[in-house]
Nucleic acid binder design. Structure first.
Lengths: 183, 183
DNA sequence: ACGGGCATGTAACTGGTTACATGATTCA
DNA sequence: TGAATCATGTAACCAGTTACATGCCCGT
């Protein structure tokens, strides 16, 4: 999802002005995408340039502008809803990449990175559990679902890290002292 | 992980030349990061500019250059190994964002996106299972671990999608019209 | 001789991020 | 009055992506 697509989705529910879009975007994404207001305006400029939105002077405040989605914009948005993101190449993930790199290309840091990452994830999981308990039913659907998603993700990552560690110790059996295998 | 960090990690194992780094980078990341060679060179330029690598004329081919990590480069790399990626803001994920947006900001597409995403993930899971079986022990550690990671990830995402759907039907109780779901 | 892979590069573009500047409104 | 928030914008930068250009080497 790009900022562009996000803004179109919001504008599809009715006209908005820039600043408003910023806050709505952030709550809609459950806080995972803090957005500099400036970017909203530049993106809106591009959308206007491409004929996806139409801008009119807002009545309320002086100098306020109101953006409205056009037919073309609605079409682009529709196409985005329909599209299934290609899984080729798969989405890159910081954790995965770093661990991969560490395992094969750093004797000294391989295990360290894995274990540090694990404790980090365990901490995150705990924090999120507490957060979820605290939230209860309040705090917005998006925020709740994000908490849920991050927890599921963290659990999966933990299982994967175990896998990685297994491969690591198998590759470099206990007691080995850096026995050659430099490759 | 940036290209910069990846290249440093590879160079830390010994001098390499640009083209070689490209292929190594790609196998190291298990194929999830196909890299245009050009980017390797521009990144190497920046690394040289910043004093992280030193370049010498390669002996083998004419015009070939060999890059070598410097003390400074090794330091930067070390810092990266030590660092734990901040979980604030959490890593953005296309699937999560799109579903979030769909659920709260698109009546017509909310359910569609979720279900389409689910079938997509189920398909992926199957493909990966087959892939894993085919791979066996061959095909490189990185590639194997990537398969494993993507499967774990997909399973977590599926569970999360169930969660989302539950919230959706609760939010929009059965019997509401609009059950048209055009598509 | 020719095509594919090895090898090095440059230019242009895209999208996201940061920082900054300006001014009006609201409320304590 | 002064700070926080609302509101609009600009400029610069960074990293990643695409496309392109050049040329050598090797095997068929």
């Amino acid at each position: 999802m790009t900022v562009r697509e996000g803004l179109l989705a919001l504008l599809n529910e009715g006209p908005r002005h820039g600043y408003q879009l910023k806050t709505e975007f952030e709550t809609a994404t459950g806080g995972v995408w803090p957005l500099n207001v400036g970017q909203v305006y530049t993106t809106l400029d591009r959308l206007e340039r491409d004929g996806m939105v139409r801008v009119t002077e807002g009545a309320a405040l002086p100098g306020q502008k109101v953006y409205e989605i056009t037919h073309q914009g609605a079409q682009e948005l529709g196409a985005w809803w329909e599209a299934v993101p290609a899984d080729e190449p798969p989405p890159r993930d910081e954790l995965m990449l770093k661990v991969l790199m560490a395992i094969e290309h750093s004797q000294e840091h391989g295990l360290n990175v894995v274990t540090r990452q694990r404790t980090e994830l365990l901490g995150l999981l705990q924090r999120k559990r507490r957060e979820r308990a605290a939230q209860g039913d309040a705090g917005g659907l998006a925020a709740r679902l994000v908490t849920e998603a991050l927890m599921a993700r963290a659990e999966a990552d933990l299982r994967w890290l175990d896998r990685c560690e297994a491969e690591l110790v198998q590759q470099r059996p206990t007691g080995t002292r850096d026995e050659g295998e430099k490759r």
